[in-house]
């Protein structure tokens, strides 16, 4: 009987230990459950925050080709020229060539074609020409890039010229509420409806024999502000419709080209080719 009692006592102790272990396990499970709940709540908050950021981003960038006011505030007519300062401090501005550009950041980075800024690069290199000019007219000539956004003239800085293909990046000192978004992948573009945006006003005809005109300075043929050269129509963007008929890759340069029939003129060079949601596929050349 003593033995049996001892066994029973031991069994009771074991049962107590098992119960204690069970309580510990339940508590641990509860804690794990709470942690899981917290993780789920955190994950949900993170998703909501990410959705808000994505939503804000969409609201703060162009998202439709029907947003004409937004587009007018995000495209720019690029004018290459020079400022001439005479010995007595009088200033003149001369336009040499023009093209199009569009903004891709809120702080004024604008994309254009490399060939649109070609005349600027030429003037930058023309040291002898500038020295001769100074001797001949007692005046300095300084190359300049201006960008007209919604008819307002801004000085632009050349930030980058691509060594791979025909694009360049400018920067103007202006805030942009809704820049364009760029398309990262060229999938399913064949037959897509597109719009070409730009300032088609002939890039060169008003400046025939432009280098001659530039180096032959006469006050009465110059403007004090280059804005006087352009009328309202030339400072308003034009949007043309078309479809993509081919997407090819140049075998030598590996550059991808989009063939489309949205009409562009010389001055539209540097403008964006956009889809319906205003995302930019590329730069018109």
């Amino acid at each position: 009987a003593e033995k049996t009692a001892e066994n029973a006592h031991k069994a009771a102790d074991d049962a107590d230990t098992a119960a204690e272990n069970a309580v510990t396990l339940v508590e641990e499970a509860k804690k794990a459950g709470e942690k899981t709940d917290m993780a789920a709540r955190n994950a949900h908050a993170a998703v909501t925050a990410a959705e808000k950021v994505a939503g804000d981003l969409k609201d703060s960038t162009l998202n439709s080709i029907r947003d004409h006011e937004g587009i007018a505030e995000a495209v720019g007519k690029v004018v290459i020229g020079a400022t001439i300062t005479t010995y007595d401090g009088e200033q003149f501005q001369i336009a040499v060539s023009s093209g199009s550009s569009f903004t891709i950041t809120r702080d004024g980075h604008m994309l254009t074609n490399k060939h649109v800024v070609e005349e600027y690069l030429k003037l930058q290199r023309a040291r002898d020409g500038k020295d001769d000019f100074k001797r001949k007219y007692n005046a300095t000539l300084e190359e300049q890039i201006w960008v007209f956004v919604n008819k307002e003239k801004h000085d632009a800085e050349l930030i980058h010229v691509s060594d791979k293909t025909d694009y360049a990046i400018l920067r103007v000192n202006r805030r942009f509420a809704k820049p364009f978004r760029l398309k990262a992948v060229p999938e399913r573009l064949l037959d897509a409806e597109v719009r070409a945006v730009g300032f088609p006003g002939a890039a060169t005809t008003p400046f025939t024999d432009r280098e001659g005109r530039l180096w032959e300075f006469s006050k009465n043929k110059c403007h004090s502000d280059v804005a006087e050269v352009f009328n309202d129509r030339e400072l308003q963007y034009v949007m043309t419709a078309g479809r993509i008929s081919q997407v090819t890759e140049d075998t030598a340069t590996k550059v991808k080209w989009i063939l489309h029939n949205a009409g562009i003129a010389r001055g539209s060079s540097g403008g964006p080719l956009v889809l319906q949601d205003a995302t930019v596929l590329g730069v018109n050349t």
Partner: peptide, 24 residues
């Protein structure tokens, strides 16, 4: 008419225009 597709120059553009927004 031709356009140069931008996606292929993503790294280059990002470097010189920080803040540019890309969409898939």
């Amino acid at each position: 008419y031709h356009a140069i597709f931008f996606g292929q120059f993503r790294g280059d553009i990002d470097k010189h225009a920080p803040g540019v927004v890309w969409v898939p």
